[in-house]
């Protein structure tokens, strides 16, 4: 049994008390990371991977702060009550907290999917970001919305099919939720948040100048083309392919070792 030094923390973000878990290395090493979680159902699916990642990074000497954004997980508020501006502020607050906890000047940001996009946006604005690790960031917001709508349509189609109903009608019904509020796999995303997500265009954003790792979780050996382009936007960016199943699409245990090990290897090389 590995002895783990983990403790719950509360992060004050503009008066919102966010829930977090701090993973500490056996020896203080002066290095810290904040893990930014993905969105909605993807967060639930990826939970165990995030825990395993935090523990692996702590084992490699990094203090890691996992936390829940406002309205998500164990943090207060209702899902849909907040928007990307609120969540960027939450990431910044977590970064400040991790810096104090670890007693360091700069903290790395690691994120998955929309969490990676938030991490990239916050890193652009903060000079105290030590490094940036982006796992399958959302590069194109419109495409992300389309894919979420499709996921809902396919799920509705299959549910009706298995129940002997009108599968095509179910798909139309699912799509009808696309007006104003959109349905992300059961999570109702209000119009303002939808518009903010649609405006995401990570390739045209101001690039973070520090060391950046972009990880493509892929069935192939090659990095997905948009992620390769994104890594090229960062002056010190590198992209790698981790050959494995997506960790954000299915509830259950997914072996995330290829992604976690590649990330820890890269972090270790920063020393």
């Amino acid at each position: 049994m590995i002895a783990l030094d983990e403790r719950p923390v509360t992060i004050d973000s503009s008066g919102h008390e966010l829930h977090g878990v701090l993973h500490l290395p056996a020896e203080p090493a002066g290095r810290a990371l904040v893990f930014c979680h993905p969105f909605a159902e993807e967060k639930k699916c990826a939970h165990r991977t995030m825990v395993e990642t935090a523990r692996a990074c702590a084992g490699a000497g990094w203090a890691v702060l996992r936390f829940d954004l406002r309205g998500c997980g164990d943090s207060p508020g209702e899902f849909g009550q907040f928007d990307l501006d609120d969540w960027r502020a939450d990431v910044a607050a977590a970064l400040d907290r991790a810096r104090r906890e670890a007693g360091v000047e700069a903290v790395g940001l690691l994120g998955l999917r929309l969490g990676a996009t938030l991490a990239a946006e916050v890193a652009e604005q903060r000079s105290d970001t030590a490094c940036l690790v982006l796992w399958e960031p959302i590069v194109d917001g419109e495409r992300y919305i389309t894919q979420n709508l499709r996921r809902s349509m396919i799920k509705a189609m299959m549910t009706r099919h298995e129940g002997g109903g009108d599968a095509e009608g179910a798909a139309r019904e699912a799509h009808a939720l696309g007006e104003g509020t959109v349905d992300f796999d059961g999570y109702q995303v209000p119009e303002r948040l939808r518009e903010q997500i649609a405006a995401i265009d990570l390739l045209s954003s101001r690039a973070y100048a520090g060391p950046a790792l972009v990880v493509s979780l892929t069935p192939r050996e090659a990095v997905a083309e948009p992620l390769q382009r994104l890594a090229g936007v960062y002056p010190r960016g590198v992209a790698i392919a981790a050959r494995q199943e997506p960790v954000w699409q299915r509830i259950g245990i997914i072996d995330a070792a290829p992604t976690i090990e590649a990330t820890v290897d890269w972090l270790t090389q920063l020393d």
């Binding site: 894919q147 499709r150 396919i154 189609m157 798909a171 799509h175 699409q249």
Partner: peptide, 24 residues
């Protein structure tokens, strides 16, 4: 449904086609 979603994404990427809502 998760597998079907993967197939849709794979078809669009590999064969450079686009699914419309009515296609499903």
């Amino acid at each position: 449904s998760v597998n079907l979603f993967e197939i849709v994404v794979g078809m669009e990427e590999q064969f450079e086609i686009s699914f419309e809502d009515d296609d499903f």
